[in-house]
Every structure is written in C-alpha cells, then in structure tokens.
Write a protein that binds this DNA or RNA. Structure first.
Length: 547
RNA sequence: GCGCCAGUAGCUCAGCUGGAUAGAGCGUCGGCCUCCGGAGCCGAAGGUCGUGGGUUCGAAUCCCGCCUGGCGCACCA
C-alpha cells in the first residue's frame, strides 16, 4: 500500500532529523484496536534509550519533524508508552473499492514469490487401503498451501508420491491373496502385519467375478504376483477417485518404482559416497546424519542388501532438486516427525540449501458425531474414510473444517456442526455472506461485474460498518501473503469469517436498493462479494450465488 | 531415559517476527422479525495465558527449570 510506504519513509527521515544516525529495526503495522489508528509505530520506543530521553518525548520530537505529503494521513497521535498512531485520510480508504473491482478474481494475488519453483507434495498414502480422514486433512492443507503459493507468484507443482514398491506392497499382496482364498470359500488367514480391512475382501470378490474362480487355484507365487499388481492398481484407482471427488488434482504422480527403474537410488548413493557422508559398518551402509544434527547415523542399505525406507526417499528428494525445484514442501502425518531430521540431514549431505526441504506436519483428526468419537485405525480395518466423511458433510464443509485450524494442532472434527445449516457453522456463515451479496444483484437484476466505482464513494460510504468493510477488503492481499509465507491457510478462513461477520451486520442494518446511497453501496457489495469469492476459491471451496 | 510439538474463557481454537485494556466462534443469559432470504442481527457474563524463575521500557509471545498431554526415538514402512 502506498500510504504505508510513504509513512515509513517519512518516519525514517524524521528520525534522522532529530539526530539518530543508525536506525534500529522498528515496526509500522495495523494495530489490533482501531482506536489506535490505521497504522502504528514503535519507533520512538526503540530509539529512546539511545537518545537518553523518555519515549514519549522522543515521539513528540518525531511527530514534529514528520513531513508527509498531503492526502495520506488525517491525524497523528502519540499514545501509551510512546506509540505514534496514524489515522489515514478517507480517500486512502475508499481507494480500495476500485482496486478490488479492477483486479476482480485476481484481487489478493501478488508476485512476492518472484516465480520461485516450489514442489508441494501431499497425501502420498501407501496404496494399501482407502484414504481416511487424516489423509483428507493433509489433502486439504496441501492443496490450499499450493494455492497460496500460486497466488503469491510462485511456480507451484502439486505432487503425490506413491509407494508402489517395498514390503508394504508385499503385505498387501499376501493379504489380498488370503482374501481371494476366503472369497473362494476356503480357510485362509490374513498374514501377520497384513491389512485386515473389509475393503480387500471386496477387491477379492471383484477379482473372482472378473477372472473366474480358477484364479484362486493359481500357484501361490503366481497368485501373489497377480494380487500385487491388481491390488495396487485397484486401491490406487480408489484413492484417486476419492481425491478427485474431494477436488484435489495433482500435476505429478510419482511412483516409487520409478526410482529403481531409473537407477536413481544408485546415483544418489554415489553422490553421497562422493561427498563422503556414507560408510560401511556391520555389513550395512550408513548415512552420517549426525553430522547434520540427527540423533544417530542411519542405515541406508541393510546387511541383507535391501534398502531402508529412507533411501528411496532421499533419492526422490534429490530428484526433485534435479528437476529444478528451489523448494520442496512435504505435508506429512505427525507420526513421521522423527523422520524430518533424517531427510533434512540427507539434504544437507547432498549440499542443498537449508531452506530447500521443509516438512509440514499434520496432526491426527478426531471425528465426533452425536457426542461420540468415531474411531479409526488402519490396522484393524476400522476407520472413518475420507469418502464417508465427504459423503456426509459435503466437500465444502470437509475442506473448510480441515483448513480452519493450524495443521499442527490436534483437532476435533464435529460432523454435526459441519452439516449444520445455521450460522454456528463457519462454512455456511461465510458462504451465506457471499450469497447475500449476490442476492442484492439478483433482485436488482444487475451483473455484479457491471458496477463501476464513482468518485463520490469516499464521501458517501460513511457508516461504521462501511468503513470497517473497506478496511477489511484492503487487508486481504496482506493476509494471503502472510498465509503463504507461514504456510498457514487458517489465516484465510479466519479472515473470511471476520469479513463475513461485518458483511452480515452491514446487510442487516442498511438497505442498498432504493436508497440514496444505492450506487455506492452496490460498489461496496460487489467488492465484498468479490473478496469472499476469491478467498473461498483460494481454499477450494465454492461460493454459491444462493443457498 | 532422550527428542519434537502442545498446554490461552465451560468447549473448539486465534493471537502476526516481544507492544497498548489477551480475542473469535460455539455454549449460557438477555434483547431484535412490515425489510435485498430471520438459513439473520445486537448485547452481557465468562481468563492467576499449565507453573516457578530470568531477559527489558514492555512477555501469552524470547531463555531456563518443573508439571501435564500427544507423538517419535529400528538394519519397520
């Protein structure tokens, strides 16, 4: 914002004028309390000590030396221990309306990312069962984080990694083969460490229906081989379907098997060896991860010659780097947090910058319905699937609920609240605000896109709610930028709820159509509608014209 | 035992990189419907910011100890 820059520059100059040669860090920001103005600075407090004067006296001097262009500030006050508060001139505020309408669906976007190439990897579930609510939270968060980065001028790739190799797939094959036997009416038990969920029985029945009952008579090695292929294929298809319904799509699906096919493991190992961060001991190959802050060194290749889970993961992230990404952000379940230091250490060992790799941890989700917790556990095969949740609450509510809390907070998903069509439901509340703004245009038989700001806006829109609305609208781009910087989409849901609250209050208190202020209020309604729509779209949630 | 994350209103959670009187929603209590949809709006009560120290003009925020909870500490994935 222009006013912001002008004020900061004037403050710097004023500090020099009163004899401060080296300026320490100071703040100029929007105060929480509107009574403290539109902007406030702690400049006087941070330089008071060096000057050997009380902060308030310093503030007086600063204000006296302050030289600002006309039309920016209405009033300057000194308050509290020595804060200087700025109240912006009305024309500064009303400038937001034409800005919103001119930018349209791009309002809120910026180029602070400067085209930086970022890979956002999320969901990355093993193809061994249906996605559960925890995956849903990761999916919503990953997708929203990717959108935030996209909106702030990063070049984003949404990516999903599929572990289609390794022992968990062997377990899947053995479990499925057992289910095939059961489906054919024979006694068979799910092996130790296998997958007990009912879903594999369904897959087995489909196999027999399609391939014939003779399938169950195949030799065990052949049966396992086929089960492996069919199992991965059908469970992946199921997961992809769930994600599609959830509104998530990926630019890249990366298969673990590709790492082996393209010899990426060997290449990575050679790299690490060349940089002298590996060594052999007890027949195994180790990564010197303690050199980079890990608790202990980690095995990459076991003494039986097979690789640990860490090895392909390092190769995978090396491949991301080779593909030209400047940052790799992974959304992981919090149960993997012990793993972060290892991958981070491996990235260091490969010589990558410290900020290349970042893991965002997503805490587990508890689902409550009717005052009771719905349990889930992949091991026992009982869990709340993403599909069931979405079916019950709808995509919008599910996504919104996953996004409205910080990813690293444990949170309780209240199914009854998510389904509620009252103001107690935050998704509903925000969408309703959008529908109301839209409703005004429907009644007026006008296209919101057709309204154009007029010069009189600033002198006509003077009600407190109108001032508040304009301030909120002006804050949106900053909220998006900050949310992208911290990878925290909940800042956007919080913002939308605040904007919706003022919009509802305004709508309730004032009429638009047929009033003397109709023209200006239509502009305001169009701008509010636009920002609500933009915020919702950013999060992958629909903005209905009517509810 | 060691490590990571957390502990803020009855509940679910915000609190920006240290700022002014700690916020919101739900719930509770009390008001408001000739209206662009009341599927809504307004107000009130409610907090020793887990705890004890420290740093400084100023700490929910930074540092240290302790208590409580979650998770992680494999040649498993």
């Amino acid at each position: 914002m222009k006013a912001h820059e002008a004020i900061v520059r004037a403050l710097r100059d004023a500090a020099h004028t009163i004899g401060v040669s080296t300026l320490p860090e100071f703040k100029y920001e929007t105060p929480r309390d509107p009574a403290h103005g539109d902007g406030a600075t702690n400049l006087a407090l941070v330089i008071a000590q060096a000057l050997g004067k009380p902060p308030r006296a310093v503030a007086e001097q600063l204000v006296g030396a302050l030289q600002l262009p006309a039309g920016i500030v209405k009033k300057v006050e000194i308050a509290g221990p020595g804060f200087i508060n700025f109240f912006l001139a009305e024309e500064q505020l009303a400038a937001v309306l034409p800005a919103v309408l001119a930018a349209g669906e791009r309002y809120g976007q910026s180029d602070v990312g400067r085209g930086q190439r970022v890979n956002v990897e999320f969901v990355s579930a093993n193809p061994t069962g249906p996605l559960h609510v925890g995956h849903g939270r990761g999916a919503a968060l990953g997708d929203a984080i990717a959108s935030l980065l996209d909106w702030t001028g990063h070049a984003v790739t949404r990516e999903c990694y599929v572990n289609d190799a390794g022992t968990q797939i062997d377990r899947l094959a053995r479990s499925l083969w057992a289910r095939v036997q059961q489906a054919a009416g024979r006694r068979a038990e799910i092996p130790e460490g296998g997958y007990h969920g009912e879903y594999l029985l369904e897959v087995a029945e489909r196999i027999l229906a399609r391939e014939g009952r003779a399938f169950a008579d195949l030799s065990e090695p052949e049966g396992l081989r086929r089960c492996r292929v069919i199992g991965v294929q059908s469970l992946r298809a199921e997961q992809e379907e769930d994600l599609r319904e959830f509104g998530v799509r990926f630019d890249v699906i990366f298969l673990e098997s590709r790492l082996y096919q393209e010899k990426l493991i060997e290449q990575t190992l050679a790299d690490l060896a060349k940089r002298q961060y590996t060594y052999e001991q007890d027949g195994a190959l180790w990564l010197k991860s303690t050199a980079f802050g890990d608790d202990k060194d980690r095995v990459l290749r076991k003494s039986d010659g097979t690789y640990t889970y860490l090895m392909p993961d390092i190769a995978y992230h090396r491949h991301k780097r080779e593909r030209g990404f400047e940052r790799a952000i992974d959304i992981w379940g919090a149960d993997h947090h012990g793993y972060v230091a290892r991958v981070q250490a491996a990235m260091h060992a490969l010589g990558y910058p410290a900020d290349f790799f970042r893991a965002e941890l997503v805490q587990l989700v508890r689902v409550m319905r009717g005052g009771e917790e719905m349990r889930f556990s992949k091991r026992t095969g009982e869990f709340v699937s993403l599909r069931d949740l979405v079916q019950e609450t709808g995509v919008d509510a599910a996504r919104y609920f996953f996004l409205m809390r910080r990813g690293d907070s444990q949170f309780v998903f209240d199914v009854d609240l998510a389904k509620s069509q009252k103001d107690e439901n935050p998704v509903y509340y925000v969408q309703m605000a959008h529908a109301r703004m839209s409703g005004i245009f429907k009644v007026a038989a006008r296209d919101p896109a057709s309204v154009t700001p007029v010069a009189a806006d600033s002198s006509v829109l003077t009600q407190p709610e109108e001032i508040d609305l304009m301030k909120e609208l002006a804050a949106f781009p900053g909220v998006v930028a900050r949310a992208a910087e911290t990878l925290e989409p909940h800042r956007v849901t919080g913002y939308l709820e605040g904007l919706a609250r003022i919009a509802h209050a305004w709508y309730h208190k004032y009429r638009v159509l047929g009033e003397p202020e109709e023209r200006e209020r239509l502009v305001l309604a169009a701008a509010v509608r636009q920002v609500l729509a933009n915020g919702l779209r950013l999060l992958g949630i629909t903005a209905p014209e009517r509810m």
